[in-house]
């Protein structure tokens, strides 16, 4: 269903906040401003990935294995919260139901979250956190590099801005997986266990639903299968450097993109959303 908003106060706010530059009405980019339901859902899923992983990383703050690690985890968390704000802000500008990014972040329940299952996995130990980061940041980096050339300028703009940050996340998680894999016996065992925990969520990153397929056809979204080989090769290279074996392939666990999550997400949302939900009239 296309989003055809009625003229409202919100439209004025949107106009003011609009990402200028979208070639609205130009014949060669007919889909550029068509933020229909599928596009909004896609943008929301990109925002939810960043939000939920940012929230997870922020749980480490003050508790990391060393001060320098604490700073780098907080830094990645901050980048991701910023990306989430941009993606969800864009989604909200084209979704009548939500006034702004905060409404999307704090006033949806589990079934409406579109993040992948990988990002909502608990931090576990530092090895599991780094396994999750490597698997996600490598995927996100390859995706955003391509999305930066998408036909929708607003989407391309956010992707181009985020890709630099994510390149650093990818590098950092690669370095830690190598250090831990090729460190001590204990760190190797923990790193292998962390990867084993996360491995079954990889296929979901490359799942292409009918809605996504349609957006790919329109040049709005990127088909993740186009970089799956590169992704697998990058992981294999990291594991080799880390002197680790790839975990055995496991039965894929899917569902996040359709709102069917792990049990972990409900708890994360209960914590994250508690204040705005308890005081719905309040502004902060």
């Amino acid at each position: 269903m296309p989003s055809l908003p009625t003229i409202s106060e919100k439209d004025e706010a949107r106009a003011a906040a609009s990402d200028a530059g979208a070639p609205e009405g130009s014949f060669d980019a007919p889909t550029a401003s068509a933020h229909d339901e599928a596009t909004i859902a896609y943008v929301t899923s990109l925002g939810d990935d960043a939000l939920i992983l940012g929230q997870r990383l922020s749980e480490w703050c003050g508790h990391a294995p060393a001060l320098e690690v604490d700073l780098s985890l907080a830094n990645m968390g901050l980048d991701l919260i910023g990306q989430a704000t941009n993606w969800l802000g864009l989604a909200a500008r084209h979704d009548e139901r939500y006034a702004n990014a905060d409404a999307l972040a704090f006033h949806r329940d589990v079934l409406d979250f579109r993040n992948c299952l990988l990002v909502e996995q608990p931090n576990g130990d530092f090895a599991q956190t780094m396994a999750r980061q490597l698997l996600f940041s490598t995927w996100q980096h390859l995706l955003l590099e391509r999305l930066a050339g998408a036909s929708d300028e607003a989407i391309a703009g956010i992707a181009a801005k985020s890709v630099k940050e994510v390149a650093y996340h990818r590098e950092l998680s690669h370095d830690w997986v190598v250090r831990l894999g090729d460190g001590t016996e204990e760190s190797k065992r923990r790193m292998a266990a962390g990867l084993d925990w996360c491995w079954r969520f990889i296929p979901e990153l490359f799942e292409v639903t009918e809605e996504l397929e349609a957006l790919v056809q329109r040049g709005i979204a990127v088909d993740p299968r186009s970089f799956e080989e590169e992704y697998r090769a990058a992981l294999a290279a990291t594991l080799e450097e880390a002197t680790l074996d790839a975990p055995a392939e496991q039965r894929p666990i899917l569902g996040g993109r359709r709102g069917h999550h792990s049990e972990h997400l409900g708890h994360l949302l209960a914590v994250m959303q508690y204040l705005p939900r308890t005081y719905p009239e309040a502004k902060w």
Binding site: L51, Q55, S58, E59, C61, G62, L67, E68, D70, L71, A74, N75, G77, L78, I81, G82, A84, T85, L88, A101, D102, A105, F106, V271, M272, Y274, L275, P276, A282, W284
Partner: peptide, 26 residues
């Protein structure tokens, strides 16, 4: 309170602030 900050803006400010404190410690 980082995980319970009531808006994305407050969450980012608080995370940045606590990160600054870690930097000061360093």
């Amino acid at each position: 309170w980082i995980t319970r900050a009531p808006s994305l803006r407050r969450k980012a400010i608080l995370l940045a602030k606590v990160q600054d404190e870690g930097g000061h410690g360093l």
